[in-house]
Computed example of a mutant assay.
Amino acid sequence: MSSSGPSKVTGTKDEVLGSAKATIGSTIGNHKMEAEGNAQHQHGTLEAHAATAKQQAQGAGDHVYGHLQKATGQVLGNEKMQMEGEVNKAKGQGKMDTA
């Protein structure tokens, strides 16, 4: 994983490169290369899954925050806060949907 957290792009790259390395290693009889490729593929798979989970958690947080913001705006009669709450709910739902 990168220092800024898990990345879908990096994870997918490692999955693809790891698979290729494992296949080449197997084909030429290089067991070390094959094992390294399998390990790289596994690492990539885990990183991609971690990135998805992180995005879903962030989306859920934004969605809940937006819901609370909208409800608070309704109680206070603050239309701007209600609209901002709707925007945050939609932003959170979008993150969850694209994860």
Rank of each mutant, 00 (worst) to 15 (best):
M1N: 04
S2K: 02
S2D: 11
S2R: 02
S2H: 05
S3M: 11
S3H: 04
S3N: 06
G5T: 09
G5E: 04
G5I: 10
P6H: 00
S7E: 09
S7R: 02
K8N: 06
K8M: 11
V9A: 06
V9G: 02
T10G: 05
T10S: 06
T10H: 02
T12F: 02
T12Q: 03
D14V: 08
E15S: 08
E15W: 03
E15K: 04
L17W: 01
A20D: 10
K21D: 02
K21Y: 00
A22W: 00
A22I: 12
T23F: 02
I24S: 02
I24T: 09
G25C: 03
G25I: 07
G25T: 03
G25Y: 00
S26E: 03
T27I: 14
I28A: 01
G29F: 00
G29D: 01
N30Q: 02
K32H: 05
M33E: 04
M33A: 08
M33D: 04
M33I: 13
E34P: 02
A35V: 14
A35W: 01
E36W: 00
E36V: 13
G37S: 03
N38P: 06
N38V: 15
N38G: 09
A39F: 03
A39E: 05
A39G: 05
A39Q: 04
Q40I: 15
H41T: 14
H41F: 12
H41W: 08
H43A: 14
T45Q: 07
T45N: 06
T45E: 10
L46W: 01
L46F: 07
E47H: 01
E47F: 03
E47I: 15
E47S: 05
A48C: 09
A48I: 12
A50N: 05
A50L: 12
A50R: 01
A50W: 01
A50I: 12
A50C: 09
A51F: 07
A51I: 13
T52I: 15
Q55W: 03
Q55I: 12
Q56E: 13
A57R: 05
G59L: 09
G59S: 06
A60Y: 04
G61T: 13
D62E: 08
D62V: 11
Y65T: 15
G66A: 06
G66Y: 00
G66I: 12
G66T: 09
H67I: 15
H67S: 15
H67L: 15
L68C: 10
L68A: 10
L68V: 13
Q69N: 04
Q69H: 02
K70M: 14
K70Q: 13
A71S: 14
A71N: 12
T72P: 03
T72G: 04
T72S: 08
Q74C: 06
Q74D: 09
V75A: 11
V75F: 09
L76D: 09
L76E: 10
N78E: 10
N78Q: 09
E79A: 13
E79L: 14
K80A: 12
K80T: 13
K80I: 15
M81R: 03
M81F: 05
M81L: 15
M81H: 02
M81W: 03
Q82K: 08
Q82N: 05
Q82T: 13
Q82V: 15
G85T: 11
E86T: 12
V87A: 11
N88E: 11
K91W: 07
Q93V: 13
Q93C: 08
K95R: 07
M96I: 14
M96Q: 06
D97F: 10
T98F: 09
A99R: 00
A99F: 08
A99E: 03
